[in-house]
């Protein structure tokens, strides 16, 4: 991966931070969000890794992650985060960006069994836009 000033400071990242109201740079990658996430087994890319992708300017990789749809918006991560980052809001911002684009109908299985209701709602949003 080659990074530089332009790949790190894109309009898309500015947009994402504007929608979410959260600053991705604040995260110091302790992983407490992932450790407490009720869906960490299903996420594929763990929540803290989603933030790391954004810190490195890899927004498209984050947008492609199933994790943003599996996120139940339960805000456990926000409640636990030592740096005051509300990751749920960042996840929501990523969903919003995708929904505004019109989501590509990627092959996505049903929500994992036992997933919280909110996850199912986010899946509905994905398929209904």
């Amino acid at each position: 991966m080659r990074i530089n000033r332009d790949t790190l400071r894109t309009d898309l990242i500015a947009k994402l931070q504007e929608i979410s109201g959260e600053t991705v740079a604040l995260c110091y990658q302790c992983g407490k969000c992932s450790a407490g996430c009720p869906l960490e087994r299903e996420m594929g890319i763990l929540p803290h890794r989603v933030i790391r992708l954004l810190q490195l300017g890899q927004v498209e990789e984050a947008l492609a992650a199933n994790a943003i749809w599996l996120c139940a918006a339960c805000h456990t991560c926000a409640a636990r985060c030592p740096r005051g980052v509300d990751l749920s809001r960042t996840m929501e911002a990523l969903r919003v960006i995708l929904l505004r684009r019109g989501v590509p109908r990627a092959a996505l299985g049903p929500p994992p069994p036992g997933a919280p209701q909110q996850t199912i709602v986010s899946f509905l949003r994905k398929y209904s836009s």
């Binding site: 991966m1 080659r2 990074i3 530089n4 990658q29 890794r49 790391r52 992708l53 490195l56 890899q58």
Partner: peptide, 12 residues
């Protein structure tokens, strides 16, 4: 390398 994301990194 960025071991946090598991990616090799190149910077000019």
């Amino acid at each position: 390398v960025d071991t946090l994301s598991g990616q090799a990194v190149e910077i000019a």
